[in-house]
Design a protein around this nucleic acid. Structure first.
Lengths: 248, 248
DNA sequence: GCGGATTCTCAACGAGCTCACAAGTTCGTC
DNA sequence: GACGAACTTGTGAGCTCGTTGAGAATCCGC
């Protein structure tokens, strides 16, 4: 069974593009075209510059040409493995960050040791919010700035992303990971209605297509836990989607 | 039963042509001629430049020749599927945006993954306002400028398209999706009278022809909800259509 | 490898929405 | 003022969409 991903994924604002500095430059190295598409489109949408490569050789070339700040690197490449590519890239470019893309089961054991020093790995399938969040996190670490506040708030609800806690009117509320992720997405888009499709694409994995009403089910779960302690916050726009609305 | 479409469609001003920059260039790839006509005429009417193709091969050629900013792409093409076309177009042209056209039922599962990053899809049958709105939204995203406000206002009525809310004199008014869509159309054309035919074509699906008085019925609904809280705003031009008129 | 937690599917139910129809009302014209 | 056309609106049927409980599959910690 598929499951939503959320480990470590931070919030992602939809639609806004950072404008206050040069966009970070990301190189995507991955041999499956559809995945390259998804990653490139998503990164560009969020204001990054993205280049792509589908082989190890291409990766080296593209890196020389575009000098990326960060590389999203599939560990299973047709013409050589990702470790070697990583080693070559690091040898040739100072201060280059790497995030590995890897199949779920081989993740922990294989990648673990190599991500010391601030880099990261993402297991496939992922959800897009997670990728953006990790890319941002890694870039932030390598070029430290003012840390962003990690608390999202709306009405009397507070969600702390780093502490992984939720409170309503000061009272702690226990959420499962998927519920947490869904609430975070609603909070990030607090002033607007988001469609079920948008929710699905941001909270669940990119290749997850339910035959059934997962989103509705989780909205129902959230309501039960959240709206128990006060006036209802989650509103349904029939035929459109869901959103948050301050009571009154 | 047929029903009006509105999911995610933003406001569309009819008849006005953007003049402050080069008109955006749209390529329509769709094998049903009548649909191509509807789309091309509509887009040109709204100030876009439109070219058309009915096969995958033609699409590639036309793209080379006209360098479109955006492609409306049917996913079911006679000589190849839309994904491949999409990939080819993306490989060959930087920064090209794609909006997929797809049958309603196959929408979510098939298109989902590819639209995450900011491109979009539209399910058939659609209404033309929706197409224009989505085309504008996608173009806006790929060439970011100052974000447009999402509020339409007239007299003491405000309609917020992203929050899906309507207020009269500050008081929230609860509308059904069709009512919302109709009010938006009236607001966008606040300074003129629109015919019932125009309303039908813009608010309902392009292939919808009622045997009865739907438009009148929905005008009646709107009046009941809107004009309850103040002097009447919706006026009838007997034998012509409807419009908004500021009281006094 | 056991047991609780979590995720997801499915189905039943009910509320909300759309639309057709028809009776009632208004308007313009003669 | 009378007449017909155009418009308004109440009623209700049919359908869609959202809600939620039950349960199966899976995961994860011990």
């Amino acid at each position: 069974m598929l499951r939503p991903r959320r480990d470590g994924a931070a919030a992602v604002d939809t639609g806004t593009v950072p404008t206050d500095h040069e966009p970070a430059n990301v190189l995507i190295v991955e041999d499956e075209p559809s995945l390259v598409d998804i990653l490139a489109i998503t990164l560009r949408f969020h204001g990054f510059t993205a280049h792509t490569a589908t082989t190890a050789a291409q990766a080296i070339d593209q890196a020389r040409e575009h000098r990326p700040d960060l590389v999203l690197l599939d560990v299973m490449l047709p013409d050589g493995n990702g470790w070697q590519v990583c080693r070559d890239l690091r040898a040739e470019h100072d201060d280059i960050s790497v995030i590995f893309l890897t199949a779920r089961d081989s993740a922990r054991d294989v990648v673990g040791g190599l991500t010391i020093g601030g880099d990261d790995y993402i297991t496939k399938p992922f959800n897009v919010d997670e990728v953006i969040a990790r890319v941002r996190a890694v870039l932030r670490r390598s070029a430290p700035t003012v840390p962003e506040p990690s608390v999202l708030a709306f009405a009397d609800v507070e969600l702390d992303e780093t502490a992984y806690t939720v409170r309503r009117a000061g009272r702690p509320i226990d959420l499962t990971p998927t519920e947490f992720s869904l609430l975070r997405y609603l909070l990030v888009n607090a002033d607007r209605i988001v469609t079920k499709d948008q929710i699905l694409h941001h909270v669940w994995e990119y290749d997850f297509t339910p035959e059934s009403t997962v989103v509705e089910t989780y909205i129902s779960y959230l309501r039960r836990k959240l709206d128990k302690h006060g006036p209802p916050l989650i509103v349904t726009r029939r035929g459109v989607g869901y959103g948050l609305r301050a009571p009154g």
